[in-house]
């Protein structure tokens, strides 16, 4: 009998422990958010959002150029990377042969797992070295490389959830395949695809490593796409490791802006996804 009691105690204890594990991991998220909101909230003000950075030692100033720089580079990256992945994803879902599609899928997953710093080196070799200068274009190129696999896999995944009957119905009406894809399948899967793309863009917006030596940094407004450009994540890094209290304050504020953007997009996108994709079964 004591054996049974022992087993029951072990059972209860271990199950309790797994609950504690979960609590710890979830708690970490709330600790992170709490610290950011506390420290960032103290530091964020109107100057931060509208002014240029000041030299070290002078209090005040902001990171307006970094906010704009991030927006420009992420926007450009989305313009390049998302359509490439989208069209590739259509191929995988609608035309793909077996082994070629498998190779592309596998490569996309590997590309997705390549450390972002290595993507940065690649972008440097392709877009910085030949052009003899750091630029927003190079930064956008690096970010777009991270978006391609995400966009490709999302597109494929959601197009495959579109029921076969929908395609066959349209084909039976005499529509050619490209018309079926563009007017039936893609619209049906669009909600999911867009959500996945938005999540990908949010991830790219937080990337710092690929920008370190492609877009570099800039304390002033970048007037052209071929100039070094400031980005929010890079600014957070530079400010955080510098020895000035006022810069630390700005790093926290920038962190709060970045995390707010990332979390809002994530929560909205996942909320839309959880409401279901608007595909009619049948």
């Amino acid at each position: 009998m004591s054996r049974l009691i022992y087993r029951k105690i072990v059972n209860g204890f271990m199950l309790f422990l797994t609950g504690v594990c979960t609590l710890v991991t979830v708690l970490v998220l709330f600790l992170i958010l709490g610290f950011l909101i506390y420290n960032g909230g103290k530091s964020i003000d109107w100057n931060f959002l509208t002014k240029l950075p000041l030299p070290p030692g002078e209090p005040g100033g902001g990171l307006a150029n970094a906010i704009v720089g991030s927006a420009v580079m992420v926007g450009l990256a989305a313009l390049i990377g998302l359509p490439v992945g989208f069209l590739g994803g259509i191929y995988l879902a609608e035309f793909g042969g077996k082994s070629f599609a498998f190779a592309v899928r596998y490569m996309a997953d590997l590309l997705n797992g390549v450390p972002s710093i290595v993507i940065g080196i690649f972008a440097w070799g392709v877009a910085v070295k030949p052009m003899h200068g750091y630029s927003a274009l190079a930064g956008a190129f690096a970010l777009s490389l991270m978006l391609v696999p995400i966009s490709l896999r999302t597109t494929e995944q959601f197009m495959l959830t579109v029921p076969r009957a929908l395609r066959e119905g349209a084909l039976a009406l005499g529509a050619p395949k490209w018309k079926v894809i563009s007017t039936v399948v893609v619209p049906a899967a669009m909600k999911g695809i867009l959500t996945g793309m938005i999540l990908g863009v949010a991830r790219a917006a937080g990337e710092c490593a690929p920008l370190l030596f492609t877009a570099l940094n800039n304390n002033f407004w970048a007037r052209r796409l071929t100039e070094p450009t400031a980005a929010l994540p890079v600014m957070i890094y530079r400010r955080a490791i510098a020895p000035y209290d006022d810069w630390h304050r700005q790093a926290w504020a920038a962190g709060l802006v970045l995390i707010a953007m990332v979390l809002i997009t994530n929560i909205t996108a996942r909320y839309i996804l959880s409401r279901g994709i608007s595909v009619q079964k049948g």
Binding site: L87, G88, I90, L92, F122, V126, L145, K179
Partner: peptide, 29 residues
């Protein structure tokens, strides 16, 4: 000739670009 073939070909190019980019990345490094 037909839209289907164009669509097939264009999307194939983009899917293949993933392989190309990965290969290019290795080569560049």
């Amino acid at each position: 000739q037909t839209g289907d073939e164009v669509a097939h070909f264009v999307t194939f190019l983009f899917a293949a670009s993933v392989l190309f980019v990965t290969a290019f990345l290795v080569w560049e490094l």
